[in-house]
Simulated scan of single mutants.
Amino acid sequence: MNFYHQRKNVDLYKELMKDYDTGNVLDLVKQVLPKHSTILQLGMGTGADLLKLS
């Protein structure tokens, strides 16, 4: 996983993910999990979903 050890690759990943919408996946998760449940999120990527998951 040395890909992300180079700044240009991190910048490329961030650019690719800037318009990626996980809203539909998060809506599905909310439908199946009981209210006030917790989940273990492995890998935050760019961190765009941090506030949505908290």
Rank of each mutant, 00 (worst) to 15 (best):
Y20I: 10
S54A: 13
K18F: 05
A48Y: 08
F3V: 14
N9Y: 08
Y20N: 06
N9H: 09
S54M: 09
L12D: 13
M17L: 11
G43K: 08
R7L: 11
N9L: 01
I39V: 15
L28V: 09
G43D: 06
M1E: 12
D19C: 03
G43H: 07
S54L: 13
L12R: 14
T46S: 12
L53V: 09
S54F: 10
D27E: 15
V25G: 03
V29R: 01
H5Q: 14
V10R: 08
Q41F: 05
F3W: 12
V29I: 15
Q31W: 01
K35P: 10
S54Y: 11
V25N: 09
M17A: 12
S37P: 01
G45E: 04
H36E: 15
Y4L: 11
L50S: 09
L12Q: 12
T22I: 00
D11F: 07
T38W: 04
T46G: 06
R7M: 05
D21M: 00
S37L: 00
K14A: 08
Y13R: 07
L50E: 13
I39Y: 00
D21S: 09
T38P: 00
N2Y: 11
H36G: 00
K18Y: 03
R7D: 09
Q41M: 04
L40E: 04
L33S: 02
K18W: 02
H36V: 04
L51D: 14
K35A: 10
F3I: 13
M17G: 00
G45H: 02
F3K: 14
L28C: 11
T22R: 11
N9T: 01
S37M: 03
K8S: 06
T22N: 15
R7G: 00
K52I: 00
Y13V: 01
D49Y: 04
M1V: 12
A48F: 07
I39A: 08
I39D: 01
L26D: 02
G45W: 03
K30F: 04
H36Q: 13
P34F: 01
P34Q: 05
Y4A: 03
A48I: 10
S54W: 05
H36C: 06
Q31C: 08
D19S: 10
P34G: 01
K52M: 07
L51C: 07
H36R: 12
K14V: 06
G23K: 10
T46K: 01
H36K: 14
Y4D: 05
G23T: 14
M44Y: 11
D49F: 04
R7P: 03
D49A: 10
Y20E: 13
N9Q: 06
D27L: 13
K52E: 15
V29P: 05
V32A: 04
L42Q: 07
L51R: 10
N24A: 14
Q6R: 09
K52A: 15
K8G: 00
L33E: 03
V25Y: 13
K30H: 08
T38A: 09
N2P: 06
D21F: 00
G43W: 07
E15N: 10
L12F: 15
G47L: 08
